[in-house]
Design a protein around this nucleic acid. Structure first.
Lengths: 334, 334
DNA sequence: CTGAAAGCGCTTACAG
DNA sequence: CTGAAAGCGCTTACAG
């Protein structure tokens, strides 16, 4: 079982204060006293109770990750899961433990959970409801938003340069000689899908070959199933439209569409080149592997952690909007 | 900012004890007093400090999930991530918060982390080092093992019936008429890979068509890359061997091998049928989608949580070895 | 260099 | 039905 500082003190023949001092390393202490105490600690495998420590220091060394997800998956999400992984790794390095929670009910319950637990800070991922954000904001607890859509002033946002990414995709396809490009754009209420489409469109406009509305379809969700379904619905138009390339505003949609194309015996990339966005793992192992604009999820998680730590420490944070640069990854599909 | 029970008491004109009682709902209390207190609580958006509560109740309502992973990913792992998701969902329902940690250094550091945090219990996933397990065991904290390889007595284990799953795969392929089956078996030091192979082999033996050693290859890791690579190495033998089916002891290996086969223009399932094991998401969206023996990861996570809760509550747990039944999912690859 | 005391924010008997 | 007191396991001034 677990021991207390009191037992250690008794066994070492000193006071609790002394034990506390040798553990914290603060204040002077006689070497012999220290050794005696250390010996007892070692023997009893004593570990200071973090709860008691948090109580007095008003610091839990816990951070909470709150992800908005209407449904499964949460942690294992191909995109957000990577951010969580990066947070986990960085947090561990900084000696924080992390609570992972989801807010699927769009309620305040999950937020309450964290707030009651007295985490030192929060990382909010994805498009949480405004009321949840306001709620957390009012609590005055430090937090950082990752890939969020909402504009709250004076808050640290970590996002991807989605518009630039859209332009990169357009530039790449255009450079490959493609002139007839079909686009599958996910829900435009999502900041990412919106910006990616706009970047793509802007580039084409600037290039003198604007995107025709008939070359654009909107899957209702950014899922594999919707990508497949949308491609199926637009297949007749696609075939007769002379398209040689497909851009989807995320990998899952691209993959779904690609599956449909393969099933129609379309040769990729010979007949149709396909490019996605996100850079999830599946994209790299698919057959053909998917060319994509990769978001630096590792940096997102890492940066979010680092900044949150600064906020917790009340250190100044000079930049509030951190924008990460995506990268074009060329694979078999183009 | 956050308030204390003291402030609430003062504003409501009662004692701290009374406030505590209306919050906990324990003991009698005059309706008017209750209303007055509740009003103040509501107005101040007061939330009891969970740390202080944990301190006195000796219950944190936190559980820790410790996953063994030599490297990335941790939470986003296609298989373990699903278990984590199920744990997250179940834990939330039971009012537990969950810490997610990994043990990649095979050290005791991650365990210490949890132990100091005073979680009420631990869920250990995958093949943690024996010393880590012993260490945790000695601490006397309740824990449950999921998909672990180690045999510790008197501990709750939640596992998949891997041997049965292997038999199911063999039975299915045999039933389809396949007689020449090639097998890619992941590291045999892993309990799962070992049992899956044995179940498969046992069935074939019982069926009078034992597996020839030349029909068996061992990828060094249970990864996509290794599956691809092993298939590539054995391709000459495979081609000349008249094989009509391939069984891999997990989906990632199967997928990697399948990619290689597709690249050789092998038609799946017409020329070669492929079956994996695990039931990860990628398997269902691949082209062709992969037939597999699906492990009930949802039940694993859920069961682990439920049992851990019982252990924490000191309730009797009648069964120590929980074995989940896998399911054959037939898809395009067979 | 060391110890006694107060306090972090709660809950839990114990009186009344 | 309600309040005062003790205590959960630590840390932090304050004396000495």
């Amino acid at each position: 079982m677990s021991h207390t500082i009191r037992e250690i003190a008794q066994l070492a023949g000193v006071s609790k204060s002394t034990v506390s001092r040798v553990i914290s390393g603060k204040g002077y202490i006689h070497p012999e006293t220290r050794d005696a105490v250390l010996k007892v600690i070692e023997k009893l495998q004593y570990k200071p109770n973090a709860v008691a420590r948090a109580m007095v220091s008003q610091r839990t060394h816990n951070i909470g990750v709150l992800i908005y997800r209407r449904e499964y998956p949460i942690a294992s999400h191909p995109f957000y899961g990577k951010i969580v992984d990066a947070i986990l790794a960085t947090a561990a390095r900084m000696n924080y433990s992390v609570f992972v929670t989801t807010d699927h009910e769009m309620s305040l319950r999950s937020a309450d959970f964290m707030l009651e637990k007295r985490v030192d800070g929060l990382i909010l991922i994805s498009r949480l409801q405004q009321n949840v954000i306001d709620y957390i904001h009012n609590f005055g607890i430090p937090y950082v938003m990752v890939n969020g859509s909402t504009d709250v002033d004076n808050v640290v946002h970590v996002v991807n340069r989605d518009q630039d990414g859209g332009m990169m995709a357009a530039e790449y396809l255009t450079g490959l000689g493609h002139r007839r490009i079909f686009v599958l754009a996910g829900p435009q209420t999502h900041r990412s899908h919106y910006l990616r489409l706009h970047g793509f469109r802007d580039y084409l406009n600037g290039n003198g070959s604007p995107l025709d509305p008939s070359s654009l379809a909107y899957p209702q969700a950014s899922t594999f199933e919707q990508g497949y379904e949308m491609m199926r619905q637009h297949w007749p138009d696609f075939k007769s439209g002379g398209y040689t390339a497909l851009f989807a505003t995320n990998d899952m949609i691209a993959l779904g569409a690609m599956k449909f194309l393969i099933e129609q015996s379309v040769r990729i990339p010979d007949q149709v080149a396909v490019i996605g966005f996100d850079g999830i793992d599946v994209a790299s192992i698919y057959t053909p592997s998917l060319t994509t604009i990769k978001v630096d999820t590792e940096a997102m998680g890492r940066t979010a952690c680092t900044l949150l730590d600064k906020l917790i420490d009340q250190q100044p944070v000079n930049e509030l909007d951190i924008e990460l640069v995506p990268e074009l990854i060329i694979r078999q599909s183009t």
